[in-house]
């Protein structure tokens, strides 16, 4: 039997551009660039996050060249910044180095939780939008803060499912649904994904895309996990668009009661 792909024309729209993949892969945590490349190719991703760090003169290959030869668009981040000031400078450097206005804005509160600092995040978002950046705002799963970030002009809201690298999945699905329902910009689930079902759930909740790194790069077999994530994101997207059945308290038979043999009916 031949299969028909009902998602063939389903595109991820962001910043006026269209992508066929709704999986954004981070490159952090991988043991080698070769491992990153295999995972990227298995994931089918078209957008990948990178950090901005000191240039090492005798580097062992370049992430930048890797992304270029795989035709993957870089999404630089401000990982490691604790203040709006540092995040804005990092974004400015990223724009200059990678020649993109895109920035994944991360302003973390402390090393222990790696959770976003809402005050510094909001301040940085305001400044970066004013400087014509396309801001992807990594935020807490807080519907009120998400709305404030949207109002200030960010291009995408990226709520954390759970703390970065924790693999705890989506701890508050209700908040993610609320953020999606109230948002007029794409919502991208970011952080906390541990395995494929977490990515599928994010898409079922209505997220436009999923960003994950550690779940793939630190998996025993990163390329195989990347493939699993690719398929999970597609599965979750299809389920979201298809419209799930309502939850019921009691069973509802799927086989008809009509036409049953009398002897069997008598036993019911």
């Amino acid at each position: 039997m031949s299969t028909i792909d009902h998602l063939a024309t389903d595109m991820f729209d962001i910043d006026g551009q269209q992508f066929s993949s709704r999986l954004i892969l981070g490159t952090g945590g991988a043991s080698s660039l070769a491992s990153v490349e295999q995972a990227l190719q298995a994931s089918g991703t078209e957008i990948t996050t990178v950090a901005i760090r000191h240039f090492a003169a005798a580097g062992s290959g370049s992430v930048y060249e890797l992304l270029r030869r795989n035709n993957v668009r870089p999404l630089p981040n401000t990982a490691g910044c604790f203040t709006a000031r540092d995040a804005v400078l990092t974004a400015q450097l990223a724009r200059e180095a990678l020649e993109t206005n895109w920035i994944k804005l991360e302003v973390i509160a402390d090393e222990h939780t790696l959770l976003p600092d809402p005050i510094e995040l909001f301040s940085a978002a305001e400044q970066l939008v004013a400087e014509d950046f396309t801001v992807f705002a990594y935020t807490n799963d807080d519907p009120a803060l998400a709305k404030r970030l949207e109002d200030v002009g960010v291009a995408a809201i990226m709520p954390a499912g759970s703390p970065i690298g924790s693999g705890l999945g989506i701890l508050n699905p209700h908040n993610i649904s609320t953020i999606v329902a109230r948002s007029n910009v794409p919502v991208i689930l970011d952080a906390g994904v541990g395995t494929a079902s977490d990515a599928a759930l994010a898409m079922e909740l209505g997220c436009s895309a999923v960003l994950l790194a550690s779940a793939v790069t630190r998996a025993h077999n990163p390329a195989l996990m990347a493939q699993g994530m690719r398929e999970a994101v597609r599965a979750g997207r299809a389920a979201h668009l298809a419209g799930r059945i309502p939850r019921r308290d009691v069973a509802l038979a799927s086989s008809p009661a009509e036409g049953m043999m009398q002897t069997l009916v008598g036993e019911l």
Binding site: G26, T27, G29, V50, I52, H54, L93, A97, A191, L211
Partner: peptide
């Protein structure tokens, strides 16, 4: 900005950071 690199003469005590893309989430 790169357009100003050629005209900027380094001064004693300048603190310079040259950065690029690195692996990151």
């Amino acid at each position: 900005p790169r357009g100003k690199w050629a005209s900027y003469a380094l001064c004693a005590g300048d603190r310079l950071d040259i950065v690029t893309a690195a692996q990151g989430g």
